[in-house]
Design a protein around this nucleic acid. Structure first.
Lengths: 222, 222, 222, 222
DNA sequence: AATGAATGAGAGTTCATTCAT
DNA sequence: CATGAATGAACTCTCATTCAT
């Protein structure tokens, strides 16, 4: 007998499930949907699987979000919102410019490694030509503070004569993003091609160190 | 016989298109499928659209390829095969090691910029956890010669005392790939986020020059 | 005073609407449901819309009526009940037979023109093969007094030699009903077909006069 | 040879169903849909039932018609088209005006009695406020020739001094339609209310005779 | 007494795939 | 060899109804 107190327990009646608040339900659905869209993309995602994973039912999704598309946008908003929130806690401006930019890389690399679903959602969104990101007012409002940080650190570094001049902030940002994300977005094909496990922590750590060196070598005035 | 002149007048029935060879049909379907899978991913791709674009009919696809999955694999094989074929024409070994590695970057960057559908197919395949690449014998056989090239150039450069030691060839390859592909795979989200057109030729040229500098700075012994 | 504390703490909990009696609630729901069933029929009617229109909530409907079907039957009972009630106030027996039958037509025509939802509910009920009317004890009990009135007026008119003999009361009743209702039940298709507005008061008045003439011509002994 | 009896009994293999032409299929679907929409109205009609009745499958409906709405419109177009086609074969103009108008009534009464589904479709369409009839170009183009016939017969009858003057053709048409259709559209509620079978052929014949008399009495100059 | 979130069966519609011609 | 009509399972979304508060 696995649970001898079952008889005493008030839950002998088969209740469908304990009632949760609308908020809780919304959160559960969003979580399940994030995993589903990250794993299968928009077209491959299945409402039924989300429902099951969230312990909810199809009607609730449509009550709370309105449509599969809207739910997908909500996962994007949520994942990008979390990134923006963390970005705002970065305190790089008091640092040495080179150190600041390397910390920025560390942050981005770390955030994406910790949040694989964000990488996957961005992949899915690029497959859809960023259609939804472009339409979401909430996402457009949450513009990243990182480009500005990059700009300021670069300017200070150049002014202090310690960083190479003529580096465009946006292009630098894209290079940093490339060094932070590419290996994550392409883990599977690369691991397969080279018969190595690129998701292993050691591999990632070594690669991060290399990328950091590459970035430093580029930035430092020579 | 209802129509005794049928033999004399073969075209009374309106045929929509001139009869093509099986080879031609296969090629048309593959081309249409490549575009479709690149644009919509595996789950989002529609057999009907491929049929229409190829001017063919559903039965032909199943005759020639067997299933949607098999057709998808064929597009991957075809696009990766073209890459491998071009790679084999690379003649880097007679070059100076640094120059050779930079040429390798130029090649990769160029190939991916010219073959956007390959970038998209790799994105789709990563979404599917490289399931098909791993299963395709043909793809596993076509292993890239590039890692070996990288290894040799690196070794020679180190031996000649001109390149930094302690650089792992595979990790270097992944860094080069990152600098070659990331901006292409993420054009849409980046363009949207920064309200810039990252697909513009000028933007791409400037970014490539930056990436090249970054790579050179990293490789050169300091 | 029903609630001595009402003055002290009437509104701590934010109630959206003043509390209504069960009776009031029932009446509001019935009104909203009548409109909904008349507009959309049984299958097309939506509980949610009724709830919203009535300013109530779904549970109340099931508390008060039991089911969508039962609510639908209640609207039928209510609308037919109103008709029967008005019929009982008709005082035709002291009139000249022809005049009495014309007054009966006037009444029916008027009642249906004033109560469009009754016409619509009868349409909906015929679509359902009168399934509910047949099952409702209340409706079967409220048998119309009109057929009896028709019978008596006809009999007197024939006896007095002023109305045509051999007119069957039920068939006469159906003819009168046709002249009273058809143009209302078919306003939309007829208006569309003939590009005229058959719901305009003038059109209705002219048609009523014609129908009255037709009825009189038929009834009068020739 | 795997099956030596194949030649003798071609149907031993469980074939899903003999292949029909697209035309035939379309016709089967339309027939089944007409019955379904007539019986249940638009909202109450079920695609699955139509599919089953037509021995077809859901995809075919959407291939051939596009949507439930479009299929519904097609049934309306078909049923009204049949009416218009029969109307065009009416040859009333050589008749005596009164006789012509009575023949017109006979035709309408007969057509509706023979085509109960048309009555039901018109009922369904009025429930939807003639939304679809108004939008269908095909239906608007098939305007009825009957109003013109009515107009001409009336005019001739008045000119010859044999029919009552001051009768509006459109209103006359609506009265004739009422006498032709009302008892059919309301058979169920009337039968239930009066505990009589208004669908019995004898009842219908008697009623038709009455309606004819009523019409004649109205038209004849007195 | 009153609420509205939650339910899951079932709606219309689309899909990859196959069959008869 | 080539066609495209036919298939039915599975998809997204909606509904009348009930439960926990």
């Amino acid at each position: 007998m696995t649970n001898p107190t079952a008889d005493l327990d008030a839950d002998t009646k088969p209740r469908r499930r304990p009632r949760r608040s609308a908020e809780q339900n919304r959160a559960e659905i969003l979580k399940a949907a994030t995993a589903e869209f990250a794993t299968h993309g928009f077209a491959g995602a299945r409402i039924d699987r989300i429902v099951k994973k969230a312990g909810s039912n199809p009607r609730m999704i449509y009550e709370q979000f309105g449509s599969k598309s809207a739910l997908y946008v909500a996962t994007l908003e949520s994942a990008l919102g979390a990134l923006r929130t963390e970005e705002l806690t970065l305190d790089l401006m008091h640092l040495d410019p080179l150190e600041g930019l390397l910390k920025l890389f560390d942050f981005m690399n770390g955030h994406f490694e910790r949040n694989g679903h964000l990488v996957s959602l961005l992949r899915a969104e690029n497959m859809l030509k960023a259609r939804h990101i472009r339409k979401s007012a909430r996402i457009r409002e949450m513009s990243s503070p990182v480009l500005t940080m990059t700009k300021r650190l670069l300017a200070r570094g150049v002014a202090e004569g310690r960083l190479a001049a003529d580096i465009d902030p946006l292009r630098l940002y894209v290079l940093i993003a490339a060094l932070s994300q590419f290996h994550l977005a392409n883990t599977h094909t690369l691991s397969s091609e080279f018969e190595a496990d690129l998701s292993a922590p050691e591999w990632r750590a070594a690669r991060r160190a290399d990328a950091r060196k590459m970035l430093a070598a580029y930035l430092e005035k020579t």
